[in-house]
Design a binder for these strands. Structure first.
Lengths: 252, 252
DNA sequence: GCGATCAGCGGCACG
DNA sequence: CGTGCCGTTGATCGC
């Protein structure tokens, strides 16, 4: 078990030489910045990355209990009974600070990590929109794609298209259950474009599911919902089908 | 430097006895579940918590590059040249899997962490709403609080109040710059309550800032904006002032 | 359990 | 830089 002094040396040396530092020990944590927080004594895992990322993890839960992003400056101060680590982020607007007071350190190590790889993700909303863009007939015959990721004043339209009657069709794609937020988003776009272009405009929400409230609001706003079935395959995703679910409900 | 076999033993033993396991080494990562991802060879930090949380960190950035939440089952398999860790989450709906293939392990340790403390946060939106609730006169003379966190069909109203003319006042509080989403949210509540209660209803957005687009939409919808100045102090937050910013803009 | 929302959201991409 | 929005969002709270 390293002494506090040894732990301090590990952290200092790691930060100086661009290494990852990993500490485990008993500590208190205090944060002050955009909000403030206190965490009383307990055993935690501390990770300090070469880019300044500073993470305090408890022994449960995914999210770090306290954290600081890249660009943080870490300083160490040794006392008789405490090792105090201070992570300070002094960006133009936001001033933030974490203070970790270690009373005992069970492990302190540092590592030079070599890693140039970047994560590749499949099945993002953008990818689904790209696929759908090329298969608009799944929604409706004669639907013609105009533009993907079309920037309007109040956001970004996933897919802009035109139907057989030359009406504008705004399509919002969601990769998971669509809620009220998805509907308000779509409604905003339809509102903006129907005014600006002075042209009949339809709005279509495509998602694997929709919450009952969202569907109600959708119908109330005169918008449409299509159930989007997709499968994640390895180098890419694949659209399995697209079904208008609204009429079925209205049949009752 | 531990052998792959020793690393396997550490992970197995940690998982069996409710310890935190920390591995550092050269590996590939593959994920498949709600989405899919691939990460080619490189040095990474792996954290496995007793509750099943599984985190793969690169040497930069705050977020784990691959992860799995609490409840994940971890299994290990040793090969001549590889140590394969599989984290599988088989919850009712979502089936997810991460596979980490280690080629070399630089460090493998485990720790029994004792920690019963819970984080206390100051300056949350809820806290600001509580404070504001007790000082509604800051917004306007004669404003009377009716209810905090009032549940309506389409969400939760931060503060419900009544003005001197007996109009309903719906107040939405934001702890940071309010955008379009905050306005649509408020608009939804106002819409719902003005219909349900058949009563004149006002909507007020209180936030430290508001984006230009959001302010425009707010005015267009007949809603009001108050600039909320607050300070985070240690055991709590404090409201410093509240100013109607709309009229000033309209003066131009 | 689902639904809606908050979060010190983080991160990205476009203006 | 701000604005908007996606995210394997996660975490929380109310129904």
């Amino acid at each position: 078990m390293p002494s506090l002094k040894e732990a301090k040396r590990v952290v200092d040396e790691a930060f100086d030489s661009g290494k990852l530092a990993v500490l485990v020990g008993r500590c208190k944590v205090a944060y002050e910045g955009r909000a403030a927080s206190k965490l009383s004594e307990g055993d935690r895992l501390l990770v300090i990355k070469p880019d300044g990322t500073f993470l305090v993890h408890q022994n449960k839960g995914m999210a770090a209990i306290n954290y600081q992003g890249p660009g943080t400056a870490v300083s160490t101060k040794l006392d008789d009974t405490e090792l105090v680590l201070t992570a300070e982020n002094t960006r133009p607007k936001i001033k933030e600070k974490i203070e970790v007071r270690f009373y005992e350190v069970y492990s302190a190590e540092s590592f030079a990590l070599k890693d140039d790889s970047e994560l590749k993700v499949f099945g993002s909303e953008r990818e689904l929109a790209e696929l759908l863009m090329q298969d608009l007939h799944l929604i409706e015959k004669g639907l013609v794609p105009l533009k993907q990721e079309s920037e309007v004043r109040r956001g970004t339209i996933d897919i802009l298209a035109e139907d057989l009657r030359k009406r504008l069709v705004i399509i919002e794609v969601k990769r998971r259950t669509a809620g009220l937020d998805a509907v308000t988003q779509l409604a905003r776009y339809v509102d903006e474009l129907s005014k600006r272009k002075d042209r009949q405009t339809r709005g279509i929400l495509c998602a694997p599911e929709v919450t009952p409230n969202a569907l109600k609001m959708l119908e109330h706003e005169g918008l449409e919902f299509f159930k989007l079935d997709y499968k994640i395959e390895n180098p890419s995703a694949k659209i399995m089908g697209l079904q208008k679910k609204q009429k079925m409900l209205q049949e009752f």
